[in-house]
């Protein structure tokens, strides 16, 4: 078997490049120095009007600050399923209803598909059947309706640690099965 080796001398690349190759690489760098800021601007514009484009060379901004007065305001969504006349009900966070979706994608998934009435009401029969089967799996009964409830929670720091000040229902969309 031959040896898988090369000289251990560090390579001084400059001397080994042909001028043409070096020019191409230089142009690549110049192109990227122009392209990267431009694509960032495009990502911002498209993201504002539609959604974040992909693929794009960006890292997450974590722009939000969640601050209100001297505490923190956080929004959560819960899925509440019930039988007729609410004989049985079960509420769950989205990560419980959609365990196959990575936690890092759950807020985006919920925002995209369940945050406005028009989108929810346009869910097809197939989509509703899928949601119903998912809810049935978790809740252990066959639901007649699913309420997507948006809660705004207000936390305050006290001497005993962080405390939930209040939670307000800030939105509710219902899907009937």
């Amino acid at each position: 078997m031959g040896h898988f080796r090369r000289s251990s001398e560090p390579v001084r690349n400059q001397s080994t490049y042909s001028r043409m190759k070096k020019n191409r690489i230089r142009k690549l760098f110049i192109g990227l120095l122009i392209y990267l800021p431009l694509q960032y601007a495009v990502v911002g514009i498209v993201g504002y009007y539609d959604a974040e484009p992909w693929p794009a060379f960006v890292f997450p901004g974590f722009k939000s600050v969640y601050v209100y007065d001297d505490g923190f305001e956080i929004t959560r969504t819960i899925f509440d399923v019930e039988t007729l006349h609410r004989q049985r009900s079960h509420d769950m966070p989205p990560q419980e209803l959609f365990p196959d979706i990575p936690l890092s994608q759950i807020p985006g998934f919920v925002r995209t598909h369940f945050s406005d009435e028009e989108t929810v009401h346009n869910i097809s029969e197939e989509g509703k059947a899928w949601l119903k089967s998912k809810a049935e799996e978790i809740a252990g009964f066959t639901p007649n309706a699913m309420h997507i409830i948006e809660l705004t929670e207000y936390y305050r720091q006290t001497d005993e640690g962080a405390k939930l000040d209040m939670a307000l229902e800030s939105g509710r969309i219902t899907i009937l099965f």
Binding site: V43, G61, F62, V65, F72
Partner: peptide, 24 residues
């Protein structure tokens, strides 16, 4: 691209503790 939106979002405002908000 990770740092710049934070400036626009108000992370440098002494009245907001954004990291703490994300922690919550």
């Amino acid at each position: 691209t990770a740092g710049f939106p934070k400036i626009l979002g108000g992370w440098l405002d002494p009245a907001t503790q954004a990291t703490q908000g994300h922690l919550f």
